[in-house]
Structure formats: C-alpha cells, structure tokens
Lab assay of single mutants.
Amino acid sequence: MATDAALRRLLRLHRTEIAVAVDSAFPLLHALADHDVVPEDKFQETLHLKEKEGCPQAFHALLSWLLTQDSTAILDFWRVLFKDYNLERYGRLQPILDSFPKDVDLSQPRKGRKPPAVPKALVPPPRLPTKRKASEEARAAAPAALTPRGTASPGSQLKAKPPKKPESSAEQQRLPLGNGIQTMSASVQRAVAMSSGDVPGARGAVEGILIQQVFESGGSKKCIQVGGEFYTPSKFEDSGSGKNKARSSSGPKPLVRAKGAQGAAPGGGEARLGQQGSVPAPLALPSDPQLHQKNEDECAVCRDGGELICCDGCPRAFHLACLSPPLREIPSGTWRCSSCLQATVQEVQPRAEEPRPQEPPVETPLPPGLRSAGEEVRGPPGEPLAGMDTTLVYKHLPAPPSAAPLPGLDSSALHPLLCVGPEGQQNLAPGARCGVCGDGTDVLRCTHCAAAFHWRCHFPAGTSRPGTGLRCRSCSGDVTPAPVEGVLAPSPARLAPGPAKDDTASHEPALH
C-alpha cells in the first residue's frame, strides 16, 4: 500500500513536468492505449483535445483523470512512461527518471493478473537440437547421386540401376557391380574402391570401400567397409609401409569409374585409389579445392560414357583410347591431361624469361682521411668538412668512354686558381681547403699541381719545410723540376691526363 501511495503522490508531483515534456501524442498516448491504461473513449478524447488546445494541455488533463483511477493503472502508467522508446522521444523525461526514488519498484506484477504457477513436473524439458533432418536429407541425396545420367557406350558392359529405396527402410541396399565389389548404403556420403591386398588381414578377392557413415545421432565417422563389417581407420595404420605414394595433400579420389555407378572395369580391371599401398590413418579432407572437384561422367573428346580416367587438374575425364597418344593402361600417381600440362608450361616460361635485376654498384670503404676530388669540390665554400675520421664509401662506377685530351690552356685561363699578391707571391683563392683534413686555415699551394695542403698533414714525420718551391706529398717525388717562383700557373702540358701512381689516385688537379 505504501508503494501505491508513493506512486500516486509522484504522479501528482510530476504531472506538469510530464505534460510539458510530452510534445507529441505518439508514441506515449498510443502505448498507453495498447497496454489498456487508457480506454478507447479517453484516447479519442485526448486526441481531440490535443487538436484543440495543444499537446501539453491534453496530457495534463489525461494525467488528472489518471489520478482518479486505481493503483494498478497508475503503476502501469509509470512502466509505459519509462520505456526506452519514450525516453528517446521525450528527452525531458530523463530528469524525472533520475529523480525517481530508488525504493519504488516498478517491476512488480499487476494485482489480480498474476499467472498461475505451473508445477515443475509438468514443464517439459527442453529438446536438444538434433541433426536428424540433415541425416534424412543426406539419405535422400545419396540415391540421386547414384542414378545414371545416360546410357553407357556399346563397348562398356557395366550397366546398373540402383533400385529405389524407401527412406523408412534401415537395411542396406547393395548393387552387384562384379568382381566382388559392393556399394555402400544410402547413408554413405562418398565411396572409393580399395584393393584388398592393401588391407592387412583381408582374405580372398574381397575389396573394401572407404566410406563416411552418417549415424542417426547426427555425428559422422569415417571407416572402411569390408564385406558386411565396418573398420575404423586406426586398424589399417601401417607405419612400416615404404610404398606409400601419396598425392599432394591428398584424400582418396576415384580416378576410374563407370558411368552411372562406381566400380571396377569389366574384364577384371581393378579400380585404383589416388594413392597406392596401405590406407593412410588420417582421412581428413584435403585443403586443395581441386581434389574436391567432381569430374564429368562423359569423355571430353567423344562425349560418351564408359570407363573413364579423370584428370587431377580439371573436371574433365577421358577414354584411354581417346587420348593423344592413347594409353594402354592407367598410369600410377597423379595424372593430368594435356591442357593442364600446357597451362603449367605456359606459367613457367614467362618466369624464366623475366630479366634479372641489375646488381647495385659495389661499394668499397675508403680509409679515414681520404676523399675523392669530387667530394672536395662539392663541399660548401668557406666551411670545414665535419666528421673527417668517419669511413667514407667510394662507389665503383662504370668507366666513362675515352675522351680526347684536354686542349692547351693559356696562363690567363688559370687566373682564378691563384691570386698574385703585391710581391708576386701566389695566394690561395677563397674557399681553398686541405685535401686531407678539410680545413682551409693557413693552407699552402703546391707549386707543381696548384693543390691546397697543410705541410703537417702531408709530411707528418716532421720534415723541414723548404723556403721556396713548396710541393705536396703527391708531387714531391716527381722528377720534373719545380717552376720558378712567381709564375702564375704550371705549363698547360702538365694538365694533360697521364698515368698516375697508386698513392696519388685520389689527388687529381682540382679547380677552386
């Protein structure tokens, strides 16, 4: 009773807030009518008042009428009001819900409408889902798969039609296919003929059939049928067999079959498995989609049935006599038709004709302190090069084509190399640097090759510096006499390219 009084008091307290929050009759008014909170006449009256005075006034009048009803109607109103779709449509209802007392429970059932309790003993237990329907569909599909699609060729003596089998029958139906081979029951999904010589313990000319048996419980189990008994694959494991010639990621696949039913060829011909030897223990289905393919039931050349050999690369099948050149017997292992072999060759040939990528240039590290003349020119003028003790990398590039010797140069053309002071002394051009340390401070000019250098860098042994005729380390061993002091540049003949010694390969005349 306390809860009923509290709900009535809360409705009177929030009546105006609810009326202002509800700006549309749908969905709240319609939901109240659906849950029998508002009768039909009051529903029509509220809609009429909404058209006349507006939605807030109409709902305020409806809530005032609701306060005169019993506690069950008020409880049902609060339940409908706080439904998710009403809270989404009328956003101003959320503060009312947040301020609702926590001790007021809106989930209690309506009085007088409590459903009768059902004894637990009368409640049926839930049924577990079964796979009976899938099993029945598999039974119905198996006879259809064994139905012949056409008439065999005159040369083929193997013609068999499976008798119709009602689904209610649980007995196995067997077809006489000759040579002791028996087909599987209607619940078998796949059958492959297997030679009895590969099964340990088999006697006589009995041949087993590799099947997948579907049981009534819905589970499946792969086994071997020899005669009327089934054997699990673990009985046929043979770890010492060295003649297993397995197909790549293979499961067994029928390579020879008669049109209309699988079996042995007439005249004692023995149908073979995809792999010879003992049956392997793992009978998992292969991951290669080509091995799941269903080959055609007629020859791809003459479009006739009979004894066919199936290609492992495509769905086509052929007569042995229709092949070019014809085959006398079934080859062992994987067999592919000429079209598949030709496609494989065409895929391999473009790969062989692809040009080989060019090898990157060989990189040879230079000892610290040495650099090529090109690196000396590329440096920024007026700045010493940083990191001189790091190992430089010199790339061996292809030799350029031989060019004509340089033409003779006048001494005026070499004027930018040297600057003559007032006393006739050779001065260095701006930006000249030593080729060893890279520093341009207090550098000297070689009178023979006009290269800038430090005496301490080229002659670290402490050799005394002569007063005139300074030469760098590369030119100090040259027998050519030094030019007379005061000459602007060496003779043009000295600039012609010539053979250089091994220790002077990195010091070429550089223009500054």
Score class of each variant (00 low, 15 high):
residue 123 V to D: 11
residue 93 L to F: 03
residue 262 Q to H: 07
residue 108 Q to S: 05
residue 52 K to E: 10
residue 194 M to G: 07
residue 67 L to D: 06
residue 166 P to D: 10
residue 149 R to C: 07
residue 267 G to Y: 10
residue 74 I to P: 04
residue 81 L to M: 01
residue 11 L to K: 04
residue 106 L to Y: 13
residue 127 R to I: 05
residue 48 H to Y: 13
residue 201 G to M: 15
residue 269 G to H: 10
residue 98 D to E: 02
residue 41 D to T: 07
residue 44 Q to S: 04
residue 158 L to I: 09
residue 175 L to Y: 15
residue 112 G to A: 15
residue 144 A to M: 09
residue 163 P to T: 09
residue 9 R to Q: 12
residue 115 P to Q: 10
residue 178 G to C: 13
residue 21 A to F: 01
residue 231 Y to E: 06
residue 135 S to N: 07
residue 39 P to G: 00
residue 256 V to E: 07
residue 86 N to K: 01
residue 155 G to T: 06
residue 154 P to T: 14
residue 192 V to A: 05
residue 19 A to E: 04
residue 84 D to A: 02
residue 31 A to I: 03
residue 113 R to G: 07
residue 193 A to C: 14
residue 40 E to N: 00
residue 41 D to K: 00
residue 178 G to T: 11
residue 108 Q to D: 15
residue 140 A to N: 06
residue 259 K to F: 11
residue 140 A to F: 15
residue 85 Y to L: 03
residue 85 Y to S: 02
residue 207 E to P: 04
residue 254 P to S: 10
residue 73 A to H: 15
residue 197 G to F: 08
residue 252 P to I: 09
residue 201 G to Q: 11
residue 4 D to S: 02
residue 101 P to S: 00
residue 147 T to P: 02
residue 28 L to G: 03
residue 201 G to W: 04
residue 160 A to G: 09
residue 172 Q to E: 03
residue 237 E to C: 12
residue 91 G to W: 15
residue 126 P to V: 02
residue 55 C to T: 15
residue 69 Q to G: 04
residue 174 R to C: 03
residue 56 P to Y: 01
residue 148 P to N: 05
residue 10 L to R: 06
residue 143 P to C: 09
residue 86 N to Y: 02
residue 39 P to K: 00
residue 191 A to C: 11
residue 197 G to S: 12
residue 110 R to K: 13
residue 247 R to N: 09
residue 232 T to M: 13
residue 30 H to F: 02
residue 216 E to K: 13
residue 61 A to D: 02
residue 22 V to A: 02
residue 218 G to F: 03
residue 71 S to F: 03
residue 216 E to R: 00
residue 166 P to N: 14
residue 58 A to L: 02
residue 76 D to Y: 03
residue 98 D to Y: 02
residue 239 S to W: 14
residue 8 R to I: 04
residue 209 I to L: 07
residue 157 Q to K: 07
residue 221 K to Q: 05
residue 123 V to R: 08
residue 158 L to K: 02
residue 136 E to Y: 14
residue 73 A to G: 00
residue 160 A to S: 12
residue 173 Q to H: 08
residue 218 G to T: 11
residue 90 Y to P: 02
residue 224 I to G: 03
residue 177 L to E: 01
residue 69 Q to W: 00
residue 4 D to R: 01
residue 254 P to W: 11
residue 240 G to L: 13
residue 105 D to H: 06
residue 35 H to W: 05
residue 90 Y to S: 01
residue 255 L to E: 05
residue 184 M to A: 02
residue 5 A to G: 06
residue 214 V to L: 04
residue 245 K to M: 02
residue 124 P to C: 12
residue 31 A to F: 01
residue 181 I to G: 05
residue 171 E to W: 15
residue 7 L to C: 00
residue 35 H to E: 00
residue 124 P to Q: 09
residue 125 P to M: 12
residue 97 L to R: 07
residue 205 A to F: 03
residue 5 A to C: 12
residue 43 F to P: 05
residue 111 K to W: 05
residue 214 V to M: 03
residue 230 F to W: 09
residue 165 K to N: 08
residue 244 N to D: 11
residue 147 T to N: 13
residue 231 Y to V: 07
residue 136 E to R: 01
residue 33 A to E: 08
residue 197 G to C: 12
residue 27 P to M: 00
residue 138 A to Q: 03
residue 97 L to A: 00
residue 271 A to M: 14
residue 235 K to E: 04
residue 197 G to D: 05
residue 219 G to S: 07
residue 128 L to R: 05
residue 250 S to E: 04
residue 27 P to C: 01
residue 70 D to R: 03
residue 34 D to F: 03
residue 238 D to S: 07
residue 25 A to G: 04
residue 84 D to P: 06
residue 258 A to S: 06
residue 123 V to E: 08
residue 125 P to D: 08
residue 40 E to Y: 00
residue 95 P to H: 04
residue 272 R to K: 04
residue 97 L to C: 02
